[in-house]
Amino acid sequence: MQFSYLVTLALASVVRGATLMEAIASQSTTLSTLNSLLAEQPALMQMLMGAKNITILAPSNDAFASFVQSPENKAAAADNATLMAVLEYHVLEGMHMSSDFTTKMEFFPTMLGASSNMTMGSMMMSNMSLSSVTGGQVVGGMKMGNMVEIMSGLKETSMVQTADLMFEGGVIHIIDSVLTIPKMPSVSAVDSQLTALAGALKATNLLMAVDMLKDVTIFAPSNAAFKAIGSATGSLTEQQLAGILEYHIINGTVGYSTLLSMGLANRTLPTLEGPDLRVQATGDKIFINGAQVQIADVLVSNGVMHVIDAVLNPANTTATANPTATTPAVMFQGAAAASNVPFTSGISATTTAPSATTQTAAAGLSVEQPAVGAIGAAALFGLVIAAL
Rank of each mutant, 00 (worst) to 15 (best):
M1H: 12
V7K: 15
L9N: 15
L9G: 14
G17Q: 12
T19F: 02
M21P: 13
E22I: 03
Q27L: 06
T29D: 15
T30G: 00
S32H: 09
T33K: 06
Q41G: 00
P42C: 07
M47N: 02
N53M: 11
D62G: 06
D62M: 11
N73W: 08
K74E: 08
A77I: 15
A77T: 15
A77P: 12
D79K: 08
N80T: 12
T82C: 05
E88W: 04
E88M: 14
L92A: 08
E93R: 01
M97Y: 11
M97N: 08
D100V: 06
M105R: 07
M105C: 03
E106L: 15
F107G: 04
T110Y: 04
L112T: 06
G113T: 04
M118E: 09
S126V: 09
S126T: 12
V133L: 05
V133N: 01
T134M: 05
G135R: 04
M144E: 13
G145H: 02
G145T: 05
V148Y: 01
E149M: 10
L154F: 08
Q161H: 10
D164W: 02
F167D: 03
G169S: 03
I172T: 00
I172S: 01
I174A: 02
V178E: 08
K183Q: 15
P185W: 02
S188N: 09
V190G: 03
D191E: 13
D191S: 13
S192P: 09
S192G: 11
A196E: 06
L206D: 02
L207K: 07
V210G: 00
V210C: 00
K214F: 03
A220M: 02
F226S: 05
F226D: 03
A228Y: 00
A228F: 03
S231Q: 02
S231N: 00
S231L: 01
T233G: 05
G234D: 04
S235M: 10
Q239T: 14
Q239I: 08
L241R: 00
L241E: 06
A242Q: 09
G243I: 02
I244F: 03
E246W: 01
Y247T: 01
N251V: 10
G252F: 01
G252Y: 00
T258V: 12
L260M: 11
G263F: 11
T271W: 04
E273M: 10
G283R: 03
K285H: 13
I286V: 04
G290L: 08
Q294L: 15
Q294M: 15
Q294N: 15
I295W: 10
M305R: 11
M305C: 09
I308V: 11
I308P: 05
P323N: 09
T327G: 04
Q333R: 12
Q333T: 14
A336Y: 13
A337R: 14
V341H: 06
G346C: 02
I347N: 07
A349C: 07
A349H: 05
T350N: 14
S355V: 09
T358I: 14
T358H: 11
A361V: 12
A362Q: 10
A362D: 10
G364H: 01
L365S: 04
L365F: 14
P370H: 05
A371K: 14
V372W: 11
A374L: 07
I375G: 10
G376N: 13
G376D: 15
L380F: 06
F381T: 12
L388H: 01
